[in-house]
Amino acid sequence: MSYKSQKTLILVSFLFIPLVLLFTFTYYPAANLFYYSMLRWDGLTNKEFIGFQNYKEIFTNPDYFAVLKNNLYYFIGGVVQTGLALYFAVVLNGKIRGRNGFRVILFLPYIMHSVAIVFMFQALFNNQYGTLNAFLHAIGLDFLQQNWLGDRPTVNYALAFISLWKYMGLSLVIFMGALQSIPQDVYEAARIDGASASQQFWSITLPSIRKVVELLLLLTISGALSAFEIPFIMTGGANGTETFITKTIAVAFSFNQIGLGSALAVVMLLIVLLFIGLQKIILRGDDDQ
């Protein structure tokens, strides 16, 4: 067997299993989801093919897209989370005492189970015996006390804060990995030239990790659009906290409309792809300048 044939055989052999797994667990379920979206089916009885009627129902009923405004809270929280993670990453990348301990403390929420986090914040936000209201009372700020999970103006902010607190550790680790890849010689040369810490950040640090920032913004968009476990476990989507995913789950499994729920999932997939495409176009435009 020639060298070229051996090389081809090795490449095909190494790619075969990953491609089989990719088609089995990604493309086939996606195709099956689209097929289900064309059906009127409760998950048990016979399937009835109805074409694009489920999509017509989605785009003619404003209730389905109205819940997207709740996803906006998670997007804003995600942007704030990215900024805070970058700040802490820059600080903890320096030579400060106890930085490893602070890294563990900030990363710990990410590895905690969502159910445990929800129970913890339910005790924190409870309007009768909650720790937050008790703390505000202790320091004389009674006017700031709220029914954090009962009042519609505050509940989505509270849930978005939980998401921010939980996932900031992941962004922190990604940023720290990116910062440690920047050669220290560049910073030493900048300090010799008299550059301040802020000038080093804007001229060296931020341009060097720009692709990482773009990645985290992409994760922020997709994460905000797919927010599910925190509002689902904390409130079950009640009191104006329903997101697009919790709406999809309710339609599919609470109301036994598998076809309509599948169509909602397909629509969500298209929305995520749309935002990813827009972000790539915008950022590509910045690269061309």
Rank of each mutant, 00 (worst) to 15 (best):
N127G: 00
V213A: 06
F228K: 10
L283H: 03
I204P: 08
W165Y: 13
F52P: 05
N256S: 14
V118R: 09
Y35Q: 07
A66F: 14
L260C: 05
N61T: 11
L164E: 08
L19R: 01
A250P: 00
S171D: 14
L260D: 09
I271C: 05
Y73R: 04
L179K: 13
S114G: 07
V90I: 15
L217A: 12
H137E: 12
L218S: 08
Q257G: 01
Y35P: 00
N54I: 12
S203I: 02
G194I: 02
Y73K: 06
L15Y: 00
L22N: 03
A30D: 01
V12C: 04
I230A: 03
D185V: 12
S181M: 01
I174H: 00
N32F: 12
I17Y: 05
I58M: 05
G194H: 09
R103T: 14
S196F: 07
Y36R: 12
P29F: 04
K47V: 00
Q53K: 11
D287M: 05
N127S: 15
Q279P: 06
G83N: 03
L159G: 07
K56V: 08
A134E: 02
R191L: 06
V266G: 03
N126I: 02
L270A: 15
M112D: 02
K280R: 12
T131W: 10
K247P: 00
F201Y: 15
E188S: 03
Q53T: 14
W148F: 10
N46E: 13
N239E: 03
F14I: 09
N54Y: 04
L132N: 11
V80P: 01
L39K: 03
S13K: 04
V115G: 07
G236S: 05
L206V: 14
Q184V: 10
S37R: 07
R40V: 03
G51L: 00
L179G: 08
G94C: 05
F244N: 00
A238K: 05
Y129F: 14
K69N: 13
F59N: 06
P153R: 12
Y36W: 09
S203T: 15
G98Y: 02
T235V: 04
L11M: 10
Q199R: 15
V91G: 01
N93A: 04
L106Y: 14
N46F: 07
H137T: 11
G150M: 06
F25A: 03
L206F: 15
Q81K: 15
Y36L: 15
N71W: 00
V267I: 10
V90Q: 06
T45Y: 07
G277V: 05
D185A: 14
H113I: 12
G194N: 05
V12E: 00
R210V: 08
F255S: 11
A116G: 13
H137Q: 14
S5N: 13
K56P: 03
F175A: 03
F135C: 00
S5T: 15
Y167W: 11
F143V: 14
F143K: 13
L216W: 08
G236L: 10
F14W: 11
N61M: 02
A224D: 06
V186Y: 11
S203V: 03
N93I: 06
A189H: 07
N256V: 01
L278E: 11
S198W: 15
T241Q: 02
V213Q: 12
T26S: 12
P62V: 01
P153M: 11
V80H: 04
A263G: 15
